[in-house]
Amino acid sequence: MAVRVKTTDPIWWGLFSAGGTLAAFLLPVHVIVTGVGIAFGWVSPQVLAYQRITALLENPLLQIYLFLLISLPLFHWAHRFRFVLMDLGLRSLKTPVAVLCYGVAMVGTLLAALLLFF
């Protein structure tokens, strides 16, 4: 297939878009279970017990799931925040703003990978 798009924009928009989908569909579930459910007594606090979670984290599928859940929404934030800063008038700092925003997402992704996989 010929490459018709000659910028890197699809990469950043693709990560933004995938992160937005995860943030919209999955993060609310996690917020309700961990943030609301336990506080209101709908979910047993044992569900998040340290021993249980560390045991669950041995499962590679869960590791990948959490990695994507942390990384992709970070890129979603980075892309959105980059454009918010542009709209606020930082157009002259286009490149440093992009490096800073995507850089933070990359550092977050790296930390998540280190914690989950190593």
Partner: peptide
């Protein structure tokens, strides 16, 4: 258009011999 061109962009790297 963003969705269409993003899909195409990634496919062109993963499937360079396609059309």
């Amino acid at each position: 258009s963003k969705v269409q061109l993003t899909k195409e962009y990634f496919l062109s790297w993963m499937w360079p011999w396609g059309n």
